[in-house]
Design a protein around this nucleic acid. Structure first.
Lengths: 213, 213
DNA sequence: TTTTGTGAAGACATTCACAGCG
DNA sequence: CGCTGTGAATGTCTTCACAAAA
């Protein structure tokens, strides 16, 4: 594995790694062998020094005087991000949002696949909208997650139910959660939660538009 | 307006304001008149001092020895965030993601409404999936945005087209953009862009799960 | 020479701790 | 007395600037 003898990795660094990986993916078709931190910086809007420092947390991937070998760096980034394997994901909530996530496969392309769908009232979900996956009742969650060894869960239920679902996911053995409910959920320390709150993003835009009209 | 004589507001502060507003909304039904920063902190997971400092950027909303009047603070937050009015939003891209956003009204409840939908090939979109809104061709974008005085745009097109759409939105008069394409778009300084990248969020989870299995 | 990798400096954000006020 | 508002201290992230290496 890559040698993370260095200190804790900043959140912001981890987020940027995804960007680096995506950009390298886009240019892999071209003939270029090497890329310098300055060129990468041009393409993602960050500063060259930041890119070098980000990468240096995980090892010495570059060649002084040359740059980084694109293919090699891309593979290292994928190892670091843990996306050499495909992750199975469990989706809880098959309302509008859940079904939308199911229909929009685009964002799962990078190595994530929804492998099971749960809902409080599975019989109410029109089956033609769920693709090939059956919608299962919450009572099956623990068994299925254990059976399929699923580690990542998506919460796509209303705020009122989010905490209960979060707890159920953790009890079932999930250790990473993507939470679309606009509410903070309590989890044990070893569980990683990422919140996606579109309302909050729009309010942020609104704030700036109001301030600088 | 609130007196922002103080220095520039940190990004992180603006994001937290949304959380404060949401929590205050949830407890407005109860009889409580006042809330202390410590209580608010319990409910959102931030530190009391941080909440006080965040609010202090915009004025003195609290009463020493008592706390903050819930109703008053909530209204002040909405003024600050600029969500006393309803914002019209233009959606570009009526593929799976765009249609999903259109169907999932949940996140627009807070004062945002999709008022127009555009696509490169409007005739290809099944009309039963767009609700009551017609899907218009890109050539109408400028006119409609001007006509309806729309200031916020959502980009829900593939990465390859995101830059072109972004440029078109800016030329049409949009000044705030929510970008779902997993790519950095270039805009003039006065345009505010917020990126929502689900792939990157999942990769962040993957990173932590790989690191602490 | 060119570009990385990295201490040191700087910028920014969070937390502390207490004065100030109701 | 209790809690806000805030300067000072601390902590974290970013940027600079240069030594080290190919």
């Amino acid at each position: 594995m890559w040698e993370n003898t260095k200190s804790r990795i900043p959140e912001a660094t981890v987020n940027r790694l995804s960007t680096y990986a995506r950009i390298l993916d886009q240019i892999k078709s071209e003939g270029t062998e090497l890329i310098a931190s300055a060129d990468l910086a041009d393409q993602c809007g960050f500063k060259p020094a930041q890119i070098r420092k980000d990468l240096a947390y995980f090892g010495e991937f570059g060649v002084r005087g040359k740059g980084y070998y694109i293919k090699e760096l891309r593979e290292n980034l994928k190892k670091i991000l843990g996306v050499t394997q495909t992750w199975k994901v469990v989706l809880v909530g098959a309302g509008n949002l859940g079904l939308a996530l199911l229909a929009y496969k685009g964002f799962l392309a990078h190595g994530f696949v929804i492998d099971a769908v749960f809902d409080k009232f599975p019989e109410k979900i029109p089956s033609h909208r769920t693709g090939s996956l059956p919608v299962l009742p919450m009572s099956d969650l623990h068994e299925v997650v254990q059976e399929k060894q699923i580690k990542i869960g998506i919460i796509a239920v209303p705020s009122e139910s989010a905490q209960n679902v979060g707890t159920a996911l953790v009890n079932a053995g999930i250790t990473g959660i993507l939470n679309f409910a606009p509410t903070q959920i309590q989890t044990p320390h070893h569980i990683k939660v990422k919140n996606v709150d579109l309302g909050s993003e729009l309010e942020h835009l609104s704030f700036y538009l109001s301030q600088y009209p």
